[in-house]
């Protein structure tokens, strides 16, 4: 306590007072000039020390962090380009479709057009709207604090964070519960959209997601909850919530929209036979005749 008091009450070096008293006793002014050469030298030295200290102690933009910043920049640029391309694609698809419809109607082959439209709904190329629910998943508050969990690549899922496996299981459970369409953070889940991870990032259809993860689900909300909650995925989710404090939020909605994915394209698969009706055969699981 004495230490603190003396520190607070007499913060000034006692030497100043003593020197002033001595000078006063000798009949001179108590203070010396601040412009003596030695003060100047000292002051220049101080400035030098500050500058050098700031220079050498500032966390250097190391090669690694510069590379990281560059990576983030490139990812963001590509993301912007991709979303521009997606919008362009949607516009172009509409344009091409109306041009096609025009010339097909002229030639009397409009049936193909309506088939294409109904298939677009089934394949996830068309946006859908309707009642349903949104499920919001987020990392536990504790894990958000210690976010930078090091440089472990894939295997390092710190507990309390939503992993791609969690998302896969939840989505699987939602489909089983009768969901009619699902999008994750505005990305429609189609038959080619994978839910994967890149280290700690969750990737849906090659696009990194930022938390929170919002699943928009179209369907009968009551029925979905009734089937989902007691099923494996529901139990799994409640365990995530209880044990790992992962945040789970359900909200029913009467008019939700899931976007379509205009970029559906095949480069390897071709139809086995032309013009099989959209109605499947009597036994859809049976092997069809080649």
């Amino acid at each position: 306590m004495t230490l603190l008091t003396s520190m607070l009450e007499r913060p000034l070096d006692p030497g100043y007072q003593a020197a002033a008293d001595r000078r006063r006793a000798a009949g001179r002014l108590p203070a010396t000039s601040t412009r003596t050469p030695i003060v100047l030298v000292m002051v220049v030295l101080t400035g030098f020390l500050f500058a050098v200290g700031a220079r050498s102690l500032r966390p250097q933009p190391t090669a690694a962090s510069a590379a990281k910043a560059q990576l983030v920049q490139r990812i963001e640029a590509l993301q912007a380009r991709s979303s521009a391309s997606t919008a362009r694609l949607a516009a172009l698809t509409g344009e091409v479709q109306s041009l096609e419809a025009l010339s097909l109607r002229q030639s009397g082959a409009g049936g193909l057009e309506s088939r294409s439209r109904s298939l677009a709904v089934q394949a996830g190329a068309a946006a859908l709207a309707g009642p349903g629910l949104t499920l919001t998943l987020d990392d536990s508050p504790q894990s958000a604090a210690g976010a930078d969990a090091g440089s472990r690549p894939s295997s390092g899922f710190s507990s309390g964070r939503v992993s791609s496996t969690d998302l896969q299981i939840v989505v699987n459970g939602l489909w089983a519960a009768g969901a009619e369409a699902i999008s994750v953070n505005g990305h429609r889940l189609t038959s080619t959209a994978a839910i994967r991870f890149a280290g700690q990032a969750i990737i849906v259809d090659f696009r990194p997601l930022a938390r929170p993860y919002v699943l928009t689900v179209l369907g009968d909300a009551d029925r979905i909850r009734r089937v989902f909650d007691p099923a494996f995925a529901g139990v799994y989710l409640s365990q995530l919530h209880q044990a790992l404090k992962i945040q789970v939020g359900w909200a029913p909605g009467s008019s939700l929209t899931v976007p379509g994915d205009p970029s559906l394209r095949l480069s390897f698969a071709a139809p086995l036979r032309r013009d099989v009706g959209s109605a499947p055969g009597p036994s859809p699981t049976g092997p069809a005749t080649p």
């Binding site: 990812i75 391309s85 930078d148 440089s151 690549p153 990032a201 990737i203 696009r207 930022a210 970029s263």
Partner: peptide, 30 residues
Amino acid sequence: ERGLSQLSQPDLVRVLDNISVRASRLDAQV
């Protein structure tokens, strides 16, 4: 906030791989 910059460098490289695959696919389609 936890954006991309919170990811480690190997993770960022994977994300970049993923997204560039998608970007070039989209460009070809356009």
